[in-house]
């Protein structure tokens, strides 16, 4: 009378329990379906506009024709400037918090500041950028002012992911190097950072995705509705994808005529964002599969 049984064959599940969870799942899956449909909707409406010309030409005929090249360049440029600031600062801060920070008031204050910065509304960063970079530091409305403002916006994300990535490395990695007589910094550089690198990279890629879509911080620090010239210095003004979409959607006097361009711009922005999200996701998955020390 030996019968194989087990969890797969759990008899008579209580229906109430399953129904309860099903009720919880409905809004969640509705939300997920919405997200997927939203992307699908943008693809369906924007794909027709996408062409080599759209990606490689500046706008013409009062934005109703031509492409969005200056916006792509502007977005890539400010995103790059922002990371050039926030990645080194963020990685160093992450190293400090994960490896050096003693458990004292100062450390708690730093951690609390990082979390608070992450919660500061992006428009407030915009105000700060106007006051500090545009005005006090006299950078004017420029790629640099916008880039630095965006750098402050994504700094707390980078710090948090770096600290997490570094803390995930087992302490035996450090101890091994320390026991061989290396200094703490040498141990970190040779035996911790290389292993934390994929995690840090994931954080940076996610930061790229989110930064590219940010609008409020650049509104008054450098972005412009239209400029004939591509930015030729860090002090130039620039066009950007999210702001371009905003103006086409709300500020343009021929809203119906620019609608296709708006859809195209939205799609390019979303694809840009999703590309970096996907890269981050692939790296995270690969790390999870290959790292045997990560539980």
């Amino acid at each position: 009378m030996n019968r194989a049984t087990g969890p797969g064959a759990i008899p008579r599940r209580r229906f109430g329990s399953s129904i309860g969870f099903a009720v919880l799942a409905v809004p969640l899956f509705a939300f997920i379906a919405f997200v997927l449909l939203l992307v699908g909707y943008l693809v369906a409406n924007g794909i027709g506009v996408l062409s080599w010309e759209f990606l490689s030409k500046p706008p013409t005929a009062g934005m109703t024709e031509g492409g969005i090249l200056p916006c792509i360049i502007g977005t890539v440029l400010v995103t790059f400037v922002s990371l050039a600031f926030s990645v080194p600062v963020g990685v160093f801060s992450g190293i400090y918090l994960a490896e050096y920070a003693p458990n004292n008031l100062l450390t708690r204050a730093i951690r609390s500041s990082v979390r608070s910065l992450a919660g500061v509304p992006s428009i407030v960063y915009g105000l700060f950028g106007v006051a500090l970079f545009v005005n006090a530091m006299n950078l004017g409305m420029s790629v640099l002012a916008s880039g630095l403002t965006l750098g402050l916006v994504n700094l707390p994300w980078i710090i948090a992911t770096c600290e997490e990535a570094i803390s995930a490395i087992p302490s035996s990695f450090r101890e091994g190097a320390l026991a061989l007589g290396s200094t703490k910094w040498e141990a970190i550089r040779r035996n911790v950072l290389p292993y934390a690198f994929p995690g840090i990279l994931t954080g940076v890629l996610l930061a790229v995705a989110r930064t590219a879509g940010e609008t409020a911080p650049i509104l008054f620090t450098g972005v412009t509705y239209y400029t004939r010239q591509l930015p030729n210095s860090l002090l130039s003004r620039f066009m950007a994808l999210p702001y371009h979409l905003f103006t086409l959607a709300t500020q343009h006097d021929k809203i119906a005529e620019v609608r296709p361009v708006a859809f195209g711009t939205a799609l390019v922005l979303v694809l840009f964002v999703l590309l970096f999200d996907a890269l981050a996701f692939v790296i995270r998955m690969r790390v999870a599969r290959t790292n045997t020390w990560q539980v």
């Binding site: 943008l42 590219a212 999210p242 979409l245 708006a262």
Partner: peptide
């Protein structure tokens, strides 16, 4: 969470 808010506004 990182979806561009302008795109949602546009939607």
């Amino acid at each position: 969470a990182g979806f561009p808010s302008v795109v949602l506004g546009f939607f």
